[in-house]
Design a protein around this nucleic acid. Sequence first.
RNA 1: GGCGGCAUCGCCAAGUGGUAAGGCAACGGUCUGCAAAACCGUUAUCUCCGGUUCAAAUCCGGAUGCCGCCUCCA
Length: 486
Amino acid sequence: MGLKVYNTISGKKEDFQPVSEGKVKLYACGVTVYDYCHIGHARSAIVFDTLYRYLMTKGYDVTYVRNFTDIDDKIINRSAEEKISWREVGEKYIHSFYEDMDALHILKPTHEPRATEHIDEMIALVETLLRKGHAYQAGGDVYFSIENFKGYGQLSKRPLDEMIAGARVEIDDRKKNPLDFVLWKSSKPDEPSWDAPFGSGRPGWHIECSAMSTKFLGNPFDIHGGGKDLIFPHHENERAQTEAATGTTFVKYWMHNGFVNIEKEKMSKSIGNTLQIRDFLREYHPEVLRLFFLSTHYRSPVDYNEKSIEDTNSALHRLYYTVERAFEMIKTKDVNPLPYSDADVLEKEFYEAMDDDCNTALALAHVFELSKMINKMADEGGDSSIPHIAYLNNLFLSLTQQLGLLNDDLNVFESQEKMRHLTREGLQLSSLEEAILERTEARKNKNYQKADEIRKMLLEKGIILLDSQKGTDWRVKNISAAKGER
RNA sequence: GGCGGCAUCGCCAAGUGGUAAGGCAACGGUCUGCAAAACCGUUAUCUCCGGUUCAAAUCCGGAUGCCGCCUCCA
């Protein structure tokens, strides 16, 4: 079974057939660099990162392009607010973008072009459009004329007359048609501008993606992605201007991810409920966010709320503990992994799920089943099952890592989680260790009452003590349960 | 007003014709001095009404509710 993807323009799942055999050209709209990234950006990045990884797993030679919009009104405004140049604004937020993406283990795309480094290509594109009669000049600006581009509205599926009738389209006298959009805009005296045959100024929003995707991927290319909100007007306009200029299909498959809501409310700056990635990471492990997003199909809206995140956090712990347990059993011996057919079935189902329009939620279900299989085998014990456990564990890690999960070393994961928790509780590691020692003494003396008091005291701080032959270790209590008690 | 989407166990969430994956939580059990983790077991007929079909959560029609887009936005 081959990969199927849902194509926005046809509204259907289609068999994925790349333009060139064995190669995939993928373009995802990146960010406008004027602020820190929020978890909506993270979702988009994670969705297309997952697709990118999966395409590579399937053996495609993938060229993945993700742009930076580094010139735009918001950047100019920001530059005034922060009293730094617009270029410094760009640099600053590109830097922060990388910090966030690295923390989330988002793989680096093949190319990450910046708009301002491709002004020449944009100018050439605008000139072509002018020459072909798809664009016109008005008051120093250049507009794209939708009139003689017959496919306008196909992507977003909007009838033109009704869009025009829509109350929210701003009427601009300079436009021949209210839906015409700017390709090039004249700059005010103190704004950045570039010389062009049709007057100095700066590019409109959509033109950069047309220029850069075409430059790096050619036309047509395979997949163009982004958030659902980009379908109109951004992608509709990109498509119109590119196809009008080149006379050929722009993109074969359009893929769009759903939104992130926060507590059932749309996340937006005007409501003031945006959650930045860096703020999230102060509270939770980065993979909690990844697992959370992968638990819902990428096209569906997803509601961010504390309970769901804490549930996800518990689920992620389960995955890590499974690996920990498996390694514990394997490490003592030199083990040759021995295949196990029940696991091979799960592996097959995992790939079938991924092939079905990247159904990561279903794929994850199989990962959890595999986790159960490993734990069960470990429970039943017996040296004879160890080669199987080694096999299952290898498979488990290969599947989770395809989803970008379980990147951390177990010790790192655990200790980060513990430190994060101690900070949250305002506890010192040394005093915790002291309490544990004290309890161990009490247990030796069979003073279980005191031992239980200490256990209870620590439990109230979200710390669980784990007794074993080797001594007493501790873990962070499942946070959702801990919070419910307080 | 136009276009589109969604409604599945307490919560989250897969599932597009053959009698409901998975996660979290809960309860009972095994294990443990007590716990934890893990494992075993238990918990749904899919918003409502009508239709098509041998057969529908899945297709069609209608109702109700929720949401998104049409303006910068991942």
